[in-house]
Design a protein around this nucleic acid. Structure first.
Lengths: 147, 147
DNA sequence: CTGAATCCTAAAGGATACTG
DNA sequence: CAGTATCCTTTAGGATTCAG
């Protein structure tokens, strides 16, 4: 998992990903925050989309966090922790930080007093919907809770 | 939340054989199309298909291994290691063991002299195809190799 | 109260060497 | 060829504490 030096802030290279995001813009999008491709390092010689996607969301809690944000929309911290059901605050905090670094989740401070933040998916994060839902569907079809 | 069941040791895992958990009734298992459900423990109170699916394939190398087995078909150990490109033999061995315990991958000894084994997907493993391919597709659309 | 930071342990991941 | 064995580093994850 050694990600020696991720591009940090991905350089805004070509933005022509031909992907028109016709999301209902209930939330304001920063003009600077355009949809670009994330440059992701990959082990081995060949760059592999499966490997790299796995480095982004192949963590224990990431898919669930994204799923809850998809289902519930923008959420506060404790709201999210309650929704994820089983995660500790530290792990949730760490996971959210990682997701922010990878431009899948955005954090917004919506109130200073009392202090409140709101986590929401970026365009990239929202675009993971088919992936998350395919995971959910597979789980529904092939897994079962212990009796 | 505590984790009563260490990862890699799901509640129903047995190392022997002949002990498949019996799904009582309703799930008539067709020998030709045997699809039983894997009982997977889940953190928290509610059983969540996203969480549980993530515990099965939300590891760094699992999606890639499954992807290569989907693409290349049954493979030997070194063949697989070469295909995954970047994994060490120890991690590959550990990952394959975990995948076998979760009934996603099968190991078969196909020759004793010279010693040859073959790894292949079980029905459950093959059924992950849409999940893996949605990951691949997302990676292709939203990620880019570092320049 | 909410949202983290700190400390700690367990587990994952990895480099290398070695064996049947 | 198909792994183990060993050693080591990194990460995940949980309990607790803390700031606002």
């Amino acid at each position: 998992m050694s990600d020696p030096s991720p591009p940090g802030d991905p350089p805004d290279s070509d933005d022509g990903d031909g992907n028109d995001h016709d999301v209902d813009s209930a939330d304001a999008v920063d003009p600077d925050d355009a949809v670009e491709r994330l440059e992701v390092w990959c082990a081995g010689e060949d760059w592999c989309p499966v490997t790299t996607t796995a480095t982004l969301i192949g963590k224990k809690w990431h898919p669930v966090i994204i799923h809850r944000l998809l289902e519930h929309g923008p959420s506060g911290f404790n709201e999210l922790q309650d929704a994820v059901d089983g995660i500790s605050s530290k792990v949730l905090s760490d996971s959210l930080e990682d997701l922010q670094e990878n431009r899948l989740v955005e954090r917004e401070i919506i109130s200073e007093k009392p202090f409140r933040v709101q986590y929401s998916l970026t365009d990239h994060g929202r675009s993971l919907e088919p992936v998350i839902y395919s995971m959910r569907d597979w789980g529904v079809q092939h897994l079962a809770p212990p009796n």
